[in-house]
Simulated assay, not measured.
Amino acid sequence: MSIYHRIICFFLFSFLGYLLECVVLSYENKRLVINRGFGHGPFCIIYGFGAMGAMILLKPLSDNLLLLYLASAMMATIMELITARMMIKLFGSFWWDYSRKKLNYKGIICMESTIAWGFLGIFYFYFLDGFVNQMAGVVPEQLERFVALSLLTFYMADFIYTMRLQLKSSCDEDDATLIGRLKVY
Score class of each variant (00 low, 15 high):
residue 1 M to W: 09
residue 2 S to L: 05
residue 3 I to S: 12
residue 4 Y to W: 15
residue 9 C to F: 01
residue 11 F to A: 07
residue 13 F to C: 08
residue 14 S to N: 06
residue 14 S to Q: 04
residue 16 L to D: 01
residue 18 Y to V: 02
residue 19 L to S: 13
residue 21 E to R: 05
residue 23 V to T: 11
residue 27 Y to E: 09
residue 30 K to Q: 14
residue 31 R to Y: 05
residue 31 R to W: 04
residue 32 L to S: 06
residue 33 V to F: 09
residue 34 I to L: 15
residue 35 N to C: 06
residue 35 N to I: 07
residue 36 R to L: 05
residue 37 G to N: 07
residue 38 F to A: 02
residue 40 H to K: 12
residue 52 M to K: 03
residue 54 A to Y: 10
residue 55 M to R: 05
residue 55 M to Y: 11
residue 56 I to A: 09
residue 57 L to E: 00
residue 58 L to Y: 08
residue 59 K to M: 11
residue 60 P to G: 02
residue 62 S to C: 06
residue 63 D to A: 15
residue 63 D to Q: 14
residue 64 N to P: 01
residue 66 L to D: 04
residue 67 L to S: 06
residue 68 L to G: 00
residue 68 L to E: 01
residue 68 L to R: 01
residue 69 Y to M: 01
residue 69 Y to Q: 02
residue 71 A to K: 06
residue 71 A to P: 08
residue 71 A to R: 05
residue 71 A to V: 10
residue 73 A to Q: 07
residue 74 M to C: 14
residue 76 A to S: 15
residue 77 T to Q: 07
residue 79 M to F: 12
residue 79 M to T: 00
residue 81 L to R: 02
residue 82 I to C: 11
residue 83 T to V: 09
residue 83 T to R: 06
residue 84 A to K: 03
residue 86 M to W: 14
residue 89 K to M: 15
residue 91 F to P: 01
residue 91 F to N: 05
residue 92 G to A: 14
residue 94 F to M: 03
residue 98 Y to K: 11
residue 99 S to Q: 12
residue 101 K to G: 00
residue 101 K to M: 12
residue 103 L to H: 14
residue 107 G to V: 07
residue 109 I to D: 04
residue 111 M to N: 06
residue 112 E to H: 14
residue 116 A to S: 12
residue 117 W to H: 03
residue 119 F to D: 02
residue 119 F to M: 02
residue 121 G to N: 03
residue 123 F to N: 00
residue 125 F to Y: 08
residue 126 Y to E: 13
residue 128 L to Q: 09
residue 128 L to R: 02
residue 131 F to M: 11
residue 131 F to C: 03
residue 132 V to G: 04
residue 133 N to R: 09
residue 134 Q to W: 09
residue 136 A to I: 05
residue 138 V to L: 15
residue 139 V to Q: 04
residue 140 P to I: 04
residue 143 L to C: 10
residue 146 F to P: 00
residue 147 V to Y: 03
residue 148 A to C: 08
residue 149 L to I: 12
residue 150 S to Q: 06
residue 150 S to N: 10
residue 153 T to W: 11
residue 153 T to S: 15
residue 153 T to C: 15
residue 155 Y to T: 12
residue 157 A to F: 15
residue 162 T to M: 14
residue 162 T to E: 13
residue 163 M to W: 08
residue 166 Q to L: 12
residue 166 Q to F: 09
residue 167 L to I: 09
residue 168 K to V: 05
residue 170 S to F: 09
residue 172 D to L: 12
residue 173 E to D: 11
residue 173 E to N: 10
residue 176 A to P: 00
residue 176 A to K: 13
residue 177 T to C: 11
residue 178 L to G: 06
residue 179 I to P: 04
residue 180 G to W: 05
residue 181 R to I: 02
residue 181 R to D: 07
residue 182 L to Y: 06
residue 183 K to H: 13
residue 184 V to W: 08
residue 185 Y to F: 14
